[in-house]
Amino acid sequence: MAKNFTRSDRIAQQLQRDVAELIRAELDHPKASLITITDVEVTRDNSHAKIFYTFLGTPEDAQLIAAKLEQAKGFLRSELARGFKLFKMPELHFLYDHSIDRGFKLDTLISQAAALPKAEDDGEGEA
């Protein structure tokens, strides 16, 4: 069974690939290679694109990266427009993806819970 992808889905996938490559190659920051684009959501009318990213580094560096992405979004949008055949290039909105951090915290909590001593069964349920 073939899956039907909307045009917005295909645009989002291409934007994710192209933005990741542009950030790696063109962003003028020494730690730009530590940015990972995790997801892109494009509105139905293709006027806005939410670009979710993560960053491996200190919180201070993450704030600098966020400011750098905001500063560079006009440049990135114009570079992306060269490779897309769209009537209007979506406006880019960069949002930090906290799901990776939450996943690490949950994994840590699960590991801690698994390491706790197990409660002994009192045997009331057995016949």
Rank of each mutant, 00 (worst) to 15 (best):
V19A: 11
A2E: 12
D18E: 13
F75Y: 12
K73C: 05
L34T: 12
L69N: 11
T58P: 05
F84E: 00
D97V: 00
L92W: 00
D39I: 04
E91W: 00
D28H: 10
K105C: 06
S33Q: 15
A127P: 14
E41G: 04
T38R: 08
V42Q: 01
A119C: 00
K31E: 11
E21W: 12
I11D: 06
E91H: 06
H48R: 11
M1F: 07
K105V: 13
D18P: 08
Y96S: 06
K73N: 05
L80D: 02
R10P: 12
M89G: 00
R24N: 15
T58S: 06
Q63F: 02
A67D: 15
S8M: 05
T43F: 05
L69C: 09
S47I: 06
E21H: 15
L116I: 02
F104G: 02
Y96M: 02
D122W: 07
G74Y: 01
T108M: 12
T108K: 13
Q16Y: 04
Q14G: 08
V40F: 04
L106S: 00
L27V: 12
P117M: 06
E79T: 11
H98R: 14
L27K: 14
R44S: 13
Y53I: 01
Q71W: 08
P117H: 10
K88L: 08
Q13A: 14
A2S: 14
D45A: 08
D9C: 09
G83E: 09
Q63Y: 02
A32K: 07
A32Y: 07
K50E: 05
R10H: 10
E91S: 07
L64Y: 07
G74F: 04
R7Q: 14
Q71Y: 11
S47E: 08
L64V: 11
H98S: 05
G103M: 05
I51E: 04
T38N: 08
D122Q: 15
L95N: 03
N46T: 14
F5P: 09
P59N: 09
T108I: 12
L76K: 07
E91V: 07
A114T: 07
R44C: 06
P30S: 12
F55Q: 12
F94L: 03
A113E: 06
V40W: 01
L95C: 03
E41V: 12
V42C: 04
G83K: 07
D18Q: 13
M1Q: 13
A49N: 05
D39T: 01
Y96A: 06
F5G: 07
L106M: 11
K50M: 07
G74N: 03
E91R: 08
F94A: 06
N46M: 15
P30R: 15
Q63A: 13
A67G: 13
L80K: 08
G74M: 04
Q16P: 04
A25I: 13
A113W: 03
I100R: 10
L95A: 01
E91M: 01
K85I: 04
D121W: 02
A25N: 15
F84A: 05
Y96L: 05
T54F: 00
P90A: 01
F94V: 03
I11T: 13
K105A: 14
I100M: 13
L95T: 01
F84R: 02
L92K: 01
K31P: 01
R102N: 10
E79P: 08
L15A: 10
A66C: 09
Q112M: 11
H93S: 07
F84V: 10
A12L: 10
A81Y: 00
I51S: 05
D122R: 13
P59E: 06
F55N: 09
